[in-house]
Amino acid sequence: MPVLAGAEPFVHDTSSEVGVLLCHGFTSTPATMRPWGEHLAEAGYTVRCPLLPGHGTTWQDCNRTRWPDWYACLRREFAELSRRCPRVFVFGLSMGGTLALRLAEDLGDAISGLVLVNPSVLTRRLDAKLATLLADVLPSAKGLAGDIARPGVVELAYDRTPVRALASLSRLWRLTRRDLPSVTQPLLLAHSAIDHVVEPVNAAVVAANVRSGDLREVVLHNSYHVATLDNDAPLLFRSSVEFVESVRQVGAR
């Protein structure tokens, strides 16, 4: 299946001992992470951002994938990056944050730290719950993409939500919520004050249940869900580099 122009995975190689693995969200693409990846590369880090299976092509293609497919892709990328860099951080947006949390639950101290932007671990939206219940007969629903406050910015993502894939994501949410207490890595949790896709309760649930000794929160007051492309992107990018550097300094003592 041909990949949409601009949706391609990307790599930035450096000689740094620090690697950052980026993960995009559900129905979205690496395009949402590209400016962040460029900023991290300019800071001197080696960066990887894969295109998750079923993404960047058609929503019908996404409906043929399930959360273990997305997770396996991220885990392979982590393994490859770990062979190159002794310290690897995982950054994720939305479902990318969910997958990053799941990876942290499974791999423990192999991950040096996490930066999560509007991560999802549940939904209280009735339309989403109904859609997952109707997954066998309802192929798609209204799209989730494009929740950006900054005028003129467009997210490269599907205009429809693949419902069978969404039902699989809901199963990933349950597993990830259950195991949140096993997350002990340093964690920077960035969440938008107004988010029309992922309810604020998600960040609260993550913060209340992880056991990270170093847990920092950044509230993004001028951005909606896709904060990596929104008004607060410079704050987010700067904060993420400051976080990585502070974690490195603690590890060097």
Score class of each variant (00 low, 15 high):
Met1Lys: 10
Val3Ala: 02
Leu4Ala: 12
Ala5Ile: 10
Ala7Asp: 11
Ala7Glu: 06
Pro9Phe: 04
Phe10Glu: 09
Phe10Arg: 05
Val11His: 12
Ser16His: 03
Val20Ser: 05
Val20Leu: 13
Cys23Ile: 14
Phe26Tyr: 13
Ser28Pro: 00
Ala31Tyr: 11
Ala31Arg: 14
Thr32Pro: 00
Met33Val: 00
Gly37Asn: 09
His39Phe: 15
Ala43Met: 06
Gly44Asp: 10
Gly44Lys: 06
Val47Pro: 13
Val47Thr: 09
Arg48Lys: 06
Leu51Thr: 05
Leu51Tyr: 08
Leu52Ser: 03
Pro53Met: 07
His55Gln: 09
Gly56Lys: 03
Trp59Lys: 04
Trp59Tyr: 15
Gln60Ile: 07
Thr65Ile: 02
Thr65Gly: 01
Trp67Ile: 03
Pro68Phe: 00
Asp69Glu: 04
Asp69Cys: 06
Tyr71Cys: 02
Tyr71Lys: 12
Ala72Gly: 13
Ala72Phe: 02
Leu74Cys: 11
Arg75His: 07
Arg76Trp: 03
Glu80Cys: 04
Leu81Met: 03
Val88Phe: 11
Phe89Arg: 05
Phe91Cys: 14
Gly92Val: 08
Leu93Asp: 12
Met95Val: 09
Thr98Ile: 00
Leu99Lys: 01
Ala100Thr: 10
Ala100Asp: 10
Glu105Asn: 10
Glu105Thr: 14
Leu107Gln: 08
Ile111Pro: 12
Ile111Asp: 05
Leu114Asn: 06
Pro119Arg: 03
Arg125His: 09
Asp127Met: 06
Ala128Cys: 02
Ala128Arg: 13
Ala128Ile: 07
Leu130Tyr: 04
Leu134Arg: 14
Ser140Ala: 15
Lys142Trp: 07
Ala145Asp: 07
Asp147Asn: 15
Arg150Tyr: 00
Gly152Glu: 04
Val154Lys: 15
Leu156Gln: 01
Leu156Ile: 00
Leu156Gly: 00
Thr161Gln: 11
Pro162Tyr: 09
Pro162Asp: 03
Arg164Thr: 10
Ala165Arg: 03
Ala167Asp: 12
Ala167Gly: 12
Ala167Leu: 02
Ser168Asp: 14
Leu169Lys: 01
Leu169Asp: 04
Trp173Val: 04
Asp179Leu: 11
Pro181Trp: 05
Thr184Val: 13
Leu187Asn: 07
Leu187Gln: 06
Ser192Arg: 06
Ile194Tyr: 10
Val198Asp: 13
Glu199Tyr: 04
Pro200His: 02
Asn202His: 00
Ala203Asn: 06
Ala203Trp: 12
Val205Thr: 14
Ala208Trp: 01
Arg211Thr: 11
Arg211Gly: 05
Arg211Ile: 02
Leu215Phe: 08
Arg216Gly: 03
Glu217Cys: 08
Glu217Val: 09
Val218His: 06
Val218Ala: 12
Leu220Pro: 00
Val226Leu: 12
Thr228His: 05
Asp230Pro: 01
Asp230Val: 08
Asp230Phe: 07
Asp230Ala: 09
Asp232Ile: 07
Arg238Gly: 13
Ser239Arg: 13
Val241Asp: 07
Phe243Val: 04
Phe243Ile: 05
Val244Leu: 14
Arg248Met: 15
Gly251Tyr: 04
Ala252Gly: 03
Arg253Val: 14
Arg253Lys: 08
